[in-house]
Amino acid sequence: MNHVTVAICNYNYERYLVEAIDSALAQDYPGTEVLVIDDGSTDGSRAVIEQYGTRISSIFKPNGGQVSAYNHAIGVLETDYVIFLDSDDILYPSAVSEVMRLFVDGNWAKVQFRLDVMDSDSVLTGTHVPHSEPPHDCGKLLLGGWLYPSPPASGNAYRVSALRRFFPIPEEGINRYGADFYAIYGAALTGPIATVPKSLGGYRVHNAHGETVSFANSEQINKAPKIFNLRWAILRDIARNRLQIELPPVFYDFSHERATFCSSVYRATLPTRWRWMTRNSHTYLHTIIANPFWGVKKKLGTLVLSSLCLVPYSPLSDFVVRYISNPLARRRAVGR
């Protein structure tokens, strides 16, 4: 039997850590191993981890950021497959079994699956990520600069040999975080991607209750575009030097452009909103109109919603921005 590691990277998430570890231990796939990498937590995480004893493996390292935790984990993994589970997310019991059915039938570099979005209290919101399913050959799209639709970190299972082709990743400065960016898109440069067309876990969105904007759980939405550009530049260097693959200097991704859109027009004056939409929205609109993963209906709907930001009634404009950027703005009363 092929063995799989659920690697849980944790930093100061004592509140959610038990849910994450328990969900990994509850997998119905017999060859599942659980590894927790604690990145120098200062809360009660260590005591939580130690209470599991030999049921899990654990590594306690000085704080270095998420990239450092991924680098360390990939260096010590002894299984052929891994799921990197964020310590505030969960896996459903059949997650490992479902991805392994695909891995054993094909030479996939990565198998991804949807995640149900939940709030900070573990209440399901009625939405999931991602909303689009990519083709198997995502590498070709990356060569054209298109970032393919992928779930966040916890919704991806990797062949470890694929990850080791481009990890370790530089850990310095602003690049301490975002390790899943390199794993998600780097994997597609090493082989085909498979998708399980259903939700196999839960993704927690923090500090967002439908009345705020949210981008990738970042509290500083205005920094997201700059960080993405830096990560793309680093990925290009790694692809060139380690994989002998040349990626274009610019990339296209609706999530990235959405962050720019939201930070530019949210709670802005009407002249500011009009100025941005008429002068600076070219790339944002391009990632909608030319999006290779969306159908016509979704493109038209997103264009109509975006145009509502130009109305003089600011409460409507701000609601539209929240609706586009924040899954919890679209929440339904699920599980209440």
Rank of each mutant, 00 (worst) to 15 (best):
I234L: 12
D105G: 12
R55G: 07
E171T: 12
I184W: 04
A216L: 12
E211W: 06
G210P: 09
A7K: 00
S214D: 09
Y284L: 07
Y177Q: 14
G65A: 02
P197L: 07
L141G: 10
S161M: 08
H282V: 10
L142R: 05
H209N: 15
S150Q: 00
N207S: 12
L305G: 04
N63M: 03
H128E: 14
R273P: 03
A179Q: 08
K226R: 15
A194P: 02
K198N: 13
P249A: 09
E219R: 14
V123T: 04
R101M: 13
V48M: 00
F103G: 03
S87C: 00
R55D: 11
D28S: 11
S161W: 04
T269A: 06
V4Q: 03
T32V: 01
F254Y: 15
P249N: 10
D43R: 10
Y252N: 10
N107R: 06
A187V: 10
C9N: 11
D119M: 03
C9F: 06
R15W: 04
V67L: 01
L200W: 07
S281A: 15
N156Y: 01
T278M: 11
A183W: 00
E133N: 10
S307T: 12
R15Q: 13
G202N: 13
K299S: 01
V129T: 12
V82F: 06
T269G: 10
D318R: 07
A95H: 02
R15L: 11
G106P: 05
L91P: 01
A333Y: 11
Y92D: 12
P292E: 07
Y29Q: 00
H72G: 11
G186I: 05
A109Y: 05
P130D: 07
E211F: 03
H206N: 06
K226S: 15
Y284E: 08
D137C: 11
I238Q: 07
R242L: 13
L328R: 10
V129S: 07
G173Y: 03
Y148F: 14
V334G: 00
H131N: 14
L247M: 02
V265T: 08
R267V: 09
G144V: 10
D89Y: 01
H286I: 06
L230R: 15
P315E: 01
V6E: 01
N280S: 15
S218K: 07
T54C: 08
V129Q: 10
F60G: 06
R242C: 11
F215P: 08
